[in-house]
Design a protein around this nucleic acid. Structure first.
Lengths: 135, 135
DNA sequence: CTGTATCCAGCCTGATACTG
DNA sequence: CAGTATCAGGCTGGATACAG
């Protein structure tokens, strides 16, 4: 579990790109909800709660561009557009959920670490008169 | 392959936070290199190639705050600071590498999808905006 | 309903300069 | 060596208005 780091070549670009995509504010939520089946635009909009039209549109565009979701337009009136995960999208769901599981399982440890850190740093002046050594 | 989406509660916050941390420009690189053993500040700086002092500092601070890395100062002259992964940090490495593997393995599929998409949409528009931006 | 077009505030990032 | 401070540019994300 030690010798090789990743190749610092095109692999890095690929990894970086995925990370950037997955790390943006809404992508994972969209992928996740779409994981339960196809959805219409406004359906997603309502479900995700808090996302703006613009962000939903651009998130979906990006996902579509990279081949993670499909966009199906029904030329009815009013128009109807369905979004669904591709196979690639469903595959992406796996490692993403791995990360999500990690986040959920370690939520407390991270919160603790953060509290400890914040406590140890800036508050030093105020907390000076109290024993902070615990731990 | 469909059962539950994640709870839309604090779990979302936790997931979002990890994703944001992992999705930023440098975190994963730092975590990854540190996965091979502890490193000094400038050692990381040289290795990561392209990162600015400021970004390395703030990335490390964030990682330290969340309990993913430790920071050890040796009060020598000149000063020496070692950074190393904590257990939590090493655990994070696992799902992150899962995502990285996905990225590497599907690099081509994504590139293809993107080419297809760009081709099918407005290449003219894109070309136009390039012409504009070019000067 | 499903988008596109604008405008704008805020954050992220990098370059540069300075400190202990 | 290992940072901190400051400043400017770009990009992100949100609100709003308009269109097919």
């Amino acid at each position: 579990m030690k010798p090789k780091h990743f190749q610092v070549t095109s692999a890095c670009t690929a990894v970086n790109h995925i990370l950037a995509r997955v790390g943006d504010k809404w992508t994972v939520l969209v992928i996740n909800y779409l994981g339960n089946g196809s959805m219409r635009f406004n359906e997603l909009r309502r479900t995700i709660n808090g996302i703006s039209q613009k962000m939903l549109t651009s998130t979906l565009r990006g996902l579509e561009r990279d081949g993670f979701v499909t966009r199906t337009v029904y030329p009815t009136i009013p128009p109807r557009v369905d979004y669904a995960l591709t196979d690639l999208g469903r595959e992406l769901l796996v490692p993403v959920r791995g990360l999500a599981d990690f986040a959920i399982q370690n939520e407390q440890r991270i919160a603790n670490a953060r509290a400890r850190f914040d406590n140890a740093t800036g508050v030093a002046d105020i907390a000076a008169s109290f024993a902070e050594a615990a731990e």
